[in-house]
Amino acid sequence: MVTTRSGLKSAAAVLGASALLAGVGMGMASAPAHAATARNGVCESGEFCYYYNSGEAGSVSDFTTSVGNYGTDKATCYVFKGSGNGKGLCIKNNAASVWNRTSKPVYVYYNSNYGGASQKIAAGAKANLNSTLKNNDASHHIGAISTGSCKNSFGNPHTCAQAVTWAKNHLGSTSLGTGMCDHVVGLAYGWSSSGSSTAYVHWTQVPAADKHAGSRSVPAGGLAFFKGGSSGAGHVMLSLGGGQFASTDVGANGRYQAGHYNKTTIATIESSFGETYLGWTQPWFNH
């Protein structure tokens, strides 16, 4: 039998109607679950959420990642986004309770960059912040922070401590060049170059055993890497410890300024450079 084009359309219509009726008979299949949407003011599965009031009440501020500094400038700080009391306020030093909807423990810290007193919030738990942290929240970390230390076991001319001293001695310099981040961390460790063509390439070359993807707790001497940039070269900077880093192309305020070498933080690089943090590595160089 030859089926005409109109016959094909009719058959398709019948099949479509049958499928629709089948769906109605089954109550229609549920839509697939979607990943949480960060920063939309709704506390969804997979997120860590702050509330303005105790007892998980008031406006919500939701996160899918660790944040080392919430900021206090109303133009750039992390704010409460959900409806209710506190909406629009910076969350730093303004939160009273939390809900951890991630699968890991979350640590809330009194100081920025995961410093000072902390409170552990178990996976899935709701809690009021304790008397120390209530309205005194400055950062949070999803999952336990690495307690690793910088290793002096890669044949570098300088030790970790010597590299940190080199970096501190060069803070404020304007003679290290623009876009030379990977070269400069090599200089800090006593090399004439890093041995890699770009910071991102350097990251990809570091052995897995010496790489800590996603960890924002970087020991003094560790190398913090980012991906992105107009050419895809990424960025790298040297940890001074305590959440502070020495970086090329950074001004005295810690934000982007070509040709300058100063202190900054991971969060500031993310916002100022518009690059994505990858994690930190031991001082491994391609030599």
Rank of each mutant, 00 (worst) to 15 (best):
Met1Asn: 15
Thr3Asn: 10
Leu15Arg: 06
Leu15Lys: 08
Leu15Tyr: 02
Leu15Met: 09
Gly16Lys: 01
Leu20Met: 13
Gly25Arg: 04
Met26Cys: 09
Met28Asp: 00
Ala36Gly: 04
Thr37Lys: 12
Asn40Ile: 06
Val42Trp: 03
Cys43Ile: 08
Cys49Leu: 11
Tyr50Phe: 12
Tyr51Gly: 13
Asn53Met: 02
Ser54Ile: 12
Gly55Gln: 06
Ala57Lys: 15
Thr65Pro: 00
Val67Cys: 00
Gly68Ile: 03
Gly71Asp: 05
Cys77Ala: 08
Phe80Ser: 03
Leu89Arg: 02
Ala95Val: 02
Arg101Gly: 06
Thr102His: 04
Lys104Met: 10
Lys104Leu: 15
Val106Ser: 00
Val108Gln: 11
Ser112Met: 05
Asn113Tyr: 10
Asn113Thr: 09
Tyr114Ile: 09
Gly115Leu: 15
Ala117Met: 06
Ala117Trp: 02
Gln119Thr: 11
Ile121Gly: 07
Lys126Glu: 09
Ser139Glu: 02
His141Asp: 01
His141Pro: 01
Gly143Lys: 10
Ala144Tyr: 03
Ile145Gly: 15
Ile145Thr: 07
Cys150Asp: 03
Gly155Asn: 05
Asn156Ser: 13
Ala161Lys: 03
Ala161Val: 05
Gln162His: 05
Thr165Trp: 06
Thr165Asp: 14
Ala167Asp: 07
Asn169Gln: 12
Asn169Leu: 03
Asn169Glu: 14
His170Ala: 03
His170Leu: 14
Ser175Asn: 13
Leu176Cys: 08
Gly177Cys: 04
Thr178Val: 15
Met180Pro: 04
Val184His: 05
Tyr189Ile: 11
Tyr189Glu: 03
Ser194Cys: 12
Gly195Lys: 00
Ser196Gly: 03
Ser197Ala: 13
Thr198Leu: 15
Ala199Phe: 04
Tyr200Pro: 01
Tyr200Thr: 09
Ala208Phe: 01
His212Lys: 14
Ala213Val: 14
Ser217Ile: 15
Ser217Gln: 11
Phe225Glu: 01
Gly228Gln: 11
Gly228Val: 13
His235Gly: 10
His235Cys: 15
Val236His: 12
Leu238Trp: 00
Gln244Lys: 10
Asp249Glu: 02
Gly251His: 06
Asn253Val: 03
Gly254Val: 13
Ala258Gln: 10
Tyr261Lys: 07
Lys263Cys: 00
Ile269Cys: 15
Ser272Asn: 09
Phe273Met: 11
Tyr277Cys: 08
Gly279His: 05
Trp280Glu: 04
Phe285Glu: 13
Asn286Phe: 01
